[in-house]
């Protein structure tokens, strides 16, 4: 399946192995990304759960950050879960921190509170008929979404799965379940499109500010 298409999984720290297992289930080729050169030849990258402060620190010092920005400018696809969603957001609060800014959302770190607020919910999405399980762990809350951002799922009032062109983000952890729905969506409908991607990506970055 999927021919020569290969995905990267950022493996600085966090639950990157769980994402790898999910891609294995889908029969998709993947490689761990720890250094800038690991990005060569991939179509899309998964930014896993973990600690976003750690990810930023290590990526900045070792050139992975710049490589990811370049990858984004070339139209690379991104899928971030939890900490990964924070890295993709245009605006980060609690506390403010730098981000790749590829997705026109405003996000609040640890939005529900500390670990005691972590929970498992079930919710409907626009990408599947069946509801999916959503595991929230010290999860962020998406506070605002820009015009170009499509909300694929909500939990209570908050968007929890959002997409803007080739950028997909979940505030929960589909990789910790046995349901490949969200990963399949990324791999099949986002990760494979390459043509015209660069132009599309530019239009995102010029998207109107978050509402």
């Amino acid at each position: 399946m999927n021919g020569d298409v290969k995905f990267g999984i950022l493996a600085i720290q966090g639950d990157y192995e769980a994402h790898a297992k999910m891609l294995d289930r889908l029969g998709v080729k993947w490689t761990y990304v720890r250094r800038p050169e690991d990005i060569d030849g991939i179509t899309g990258i998964i930014l896993p759960g973990g600690e976003s402060t750690t990810h930023i620190k290590v990526m900045r010092e070792e050139g992975v950050w710049d490589a990811l920005e370049k990858f984004a400018a070339q139209g690379g696809a991104f899928f971030g879960t939890c900490a990964g969603a924070i890295l993709l957001a245009r605006e980060v609060h609690n506390p403010p921190q730098e981000s790749l800014g590829l997705l026109d959302i405003s996000i609040l770190r640890n939005g529900y509170g500390r670990q005691l607020a972590s929970d498992v919910h079930e919710g409907k999405t626009t990408i599947s008929e069946q509801p999916i399980e959503m595991i929230f762990i010290r999860a962020p809350i998406i506070q605002k979404v820009g015009h170009g951002v499509e909300v694929l799922a909500r939990d209570a009032a908050h968007p929890v799965l959002v997409q803007q062109g080739r950028i997909l983000a979940a505030t929960f952890h589909p990789e910790l379940t046995t349901d490949p729905t969200v990963h399949r969506h990324f791999v099949d409908t986002i990760g494979q499109r390459r043509e015209g991607a660069a132009a599309e990506s530019h239009s995102h970055r010029a998207a109107s500010p978050a509402r």
Binding site: G14, Y16, I135, R138
Partner: peptide
Amino acid sequence: DNLWRVKVGLAEMLKGGV
């Protein structure tokens, strides 16, 4: 058990770290 899963889930998030 969902409580157990979020307990182990946080440990999963710490993997590969210090």
